[in-house]
């Protein structure tokens, strides 16, 4: 058992047995060595389930929305990206700070579970693509920090190269590229449901009246869905990369999200989502001196 896991269990045990919290959200180990799914712990004896390893991908902040009516305080483990989700949800009034005990876990960068498929436990596994561009591996909001912060890596990630490649294409080539990607979409909505920026009470895609999104799976509807999603999470995306990780059809969704985030930074100045509670999301406010390029 690694030291991280030991520390997690220690703190969780203390919090639960002292009655400070009534629920702990963490990660556990299931039947597969390369998956660390979420776990909900409310009894001290279950604390032994908790683990931390290189496959703790899930952003547990998403579950806080299910638990708004939970009586008592909730302890939640957050990596850097997850902590930004907490800030975002706090800004959107989805959750209450006083009901949370946030335990920060500086994240060394995770491994790609898809690369581990078929391999023996302990085998060499690729780093997860989503962690390669991470600028905030250290939690930005927490009540306790479990171990020392980690250095920020500054390597150029594949997603940046993809955006550069797309930017250099002609519009028709770019359209053909996205056509190929979106035509694969099976509309399982895993991207939406895993996303902490998607916190609407009822998603427009689920509404029957007005019928925003047709039920037929065709290119046009898929484009509609993915572009709408890109606009809806614009300025609120914390770049955790979960949408791309969970997409069973491997659609490069983070290329869109990163591109939009970069555009917003270029247009309205640096405003990465979920870093500063006081700073409102870029499309939720304005500046009198905003650019007027095409008005």
């Amino acid at each position: 058992m690694n030291q991280h896991t030991v520390k997690m269990r220690e703190l969780a045990r203390e919090l639960l047995s002292s009655g400070q919290v009534s629920l702990v959200l963490g990660w556990e180990k299931g039947n597969l060595w390369y998956k660390s799914p979420p776990v909900f712990i409310s009894r001290v004896e279950d604390v032994e389930k908790l683990i931390f390893d290189e496959f703790c991908h899930n952003n547990l902040a998403k579950y806080l929305m299910d638990l708004v009516h939970h009586s008592g305080k909730i302890a939640v483990f957050v990596k850097g990206c997850d902590s930004r989700a907490i800030n975002r949800l706090l800004q959107d009034n989805q959750i209450k700070r006083e009901k949370l005990y946030i335990i920060g876990v500086p994240c060394p960068g995770l491994k790609d579970p898809d690369d581990a498929v078929g391999k023996k436990q302990g085998a060499e596994v690729k780093n997860s693509a989503k962690c390669a561009t991470c600028s905030y591996p250290n939690p930005v909001v927490y009540d306790a920090l479990l171990w020392e912060t980690v250095p920020v890596n500054t390597t150029k990630a594949p997603v940046e190269e993809l955006i550069a490649k797309l930017d250099s294409m002609t519009p028709d080539e770019r359209y053909a590229y996205w056509t190929e990607q979106f035509s694969r979409c099976i509309r399982c909505f895993a991207c939406r449901n895993v996303c902490p920026a998607c916190n609407c009470r009822e998603c427009c895609f689920d509404q029957a009246e007005p019928d925003w999104l047709g039920k037929a799976n065709n290119l046009s509807e898929n484009q509609f869905m993915q572009m709408t999603r890109a606009m809806h999470v614009a300025g609120r995306c914390i770049e955790c990369g979960e949408c791309e990780r969970v997409c069973p059809m491997n659609i490069p969704l983070m290329a869109i999200n990163k591109k939009v985030a970069r555009d917003i930074a270029e247009l309205f100045g640096e405003c990465a989502a979920g870093l500063d509670l006081e700073k409102r999301p870029p499309l939720g406010h304005f500046d009198l001196n905003d650019p007027e390029k095409f008005m």
Partner: peptide, 23 residues
């Protein structure tokens, strides 16, 4: 059900799931 996100990845990748809607 606690950790389920309510997406349809399981059903759409399942070889036996056969529910459909008419529109």
């Amino acid at each position: 059900s606690q950790k389920c996100l309510g997406c349809g990845a399981c059903a759409y990748l399942c070889p036996t799931c056969h529910c459909f809607d008419i529109s």
